[in-house]
Simulated scan of single mutants.
Amino acid sequence: MSEQHLTEAEYDAITDAAAQWCMRLHAADCTAAEREAFEQWRDAHPAHAFEYEAMQEIWDVAEHLPRPAAPALPLPAPRKPWRAYGMAAAISMLALPLAAYSGWSLGWLPSSYERFQADGSVRQVTLADSSQVELNLGTELTYSNYKDQRRVTLNKGEAFFKVAHDRSHPFVVKAASGEVRVTGTQFNVWLYQDQVRVTLLEGSVLVNSDSSHPDGGFRLDPGMQARYRQGDYQPQISQTYAHDSSLAWRQGKLVLDNLALGEALPLINRYLSTPVMLADNATGDIRVGGIYDITAVKSLVSTLPKVLPVYLTRNQDGNPVINSLPGTTPKS
């Protein structure tokens, strides 16, 4: 299997294998040889470990459900066949023996669960509720269908959502400490470390920077953007301009529109396994621009000394560090 371009059939096969391994490893008679075989399978491809972690999450949730006195009833039938979604099939195998019906009816356990990632290319997926999602490079997210809401958790990266309308069943995207709540709309969510940016194209969304206070939040209209960091009491709201470039990744581009390096680095580091650092705040004031291929951002870093008055060093952790040439930093 290709590491960067797995087909849907390959994803399904990996999901099925992860579910089988999860059940086997939790069995009392699981042998040392089986555990060794599992470790070899898990380490054979990054997607194997990714999918197994999803299975373990489901198992952990189901394990805390109360056991019913009577045999568990079947889950309500989802809108599409469960086999079409590998994660949902895993829930059928893992959760039903542990009081799945009571878990669903109380809103504790989803009727379908999907986990997606995009590695070396942008990926488009259709969720179980028919919502469409585009995943930027290096993005990981999960989708769960609960009785009272549809829930996406953006673990890292960036995603563009076209949400299937369902007013009685809100669609919630959790990112860092906050969340975005909608019923049907088009919007983008960018996450890097503890920074989140929500851009609305169509419809309306409610952005809450602290989901521990569910009654809070600010409503966005089309053309508006919200930014927050983990711990912020409320997001910063702004209007986007006509040629806003924040969604250029959907065409495979990173656009830096005369940004200070301090603002540009989170956008650059989003695509790097080893983040670039700034030597000092003054260096962060130097401005950079240009249009770059999102699959070649690594080469952008090495070219910075050719276009800016900077040079590169490395810190003790091996991170590239941008330093300004003496006498070239902007005056405050």
Rank of each mutant, 00 (worst) to 15 (best):
M1G: 09
E3P: 01
H5F: 13
A9M: 10
Y11T: 02
I14A: 14
T15G: 11
A19V: 11
C22E: 14
C22F: 02
A27L: 04
D29Q: 11
D29F: 05
C30Q: 09
A33Q: 09
A37W: 01
Q40G: 06
R42P: 02
E53F: 02
M55N: 14
P66C: 04
A69M: 00
A72P: 06
A72W: 07
A77D: 05
P81R: 14
Y85V: 01
L96I: 13
G103W: 14
S111T: 08
Q117Y: 03
D119Q: 11
Q124E: 14
L127A: 10
V133S: 13
N136M: 11
T142C: 15
S144N: 10
Q149I: 07
R151Q: 07
R151P: 11
N155C: 15
A159F: 12
F160T: 03
F161T: 10
D166E: 11
F171H: 14
V182S: 09
G184I: 12
T185S: 13
F187I: 04
V198I: 03
V198S: 10
L200V: 02
L206M: 14
L206S: 09
S211K: 11
P214A: 03
D215V: 03
D215P: 13
D215G: 10
L220I: 11
A226W: 07
Y233L: 14
A248Y: 01
D257P: 03
A264G: 12
L267M: 03
Y271L: 01
N281E: 12
A282W: 08
G289T: 05
L300N: 07
S302K: 13
S302Y: 10
L308T: 02
L308W: 09
T313K: 02
G318Q: 08
S324W: 11
T328C: 00
K331F: 06
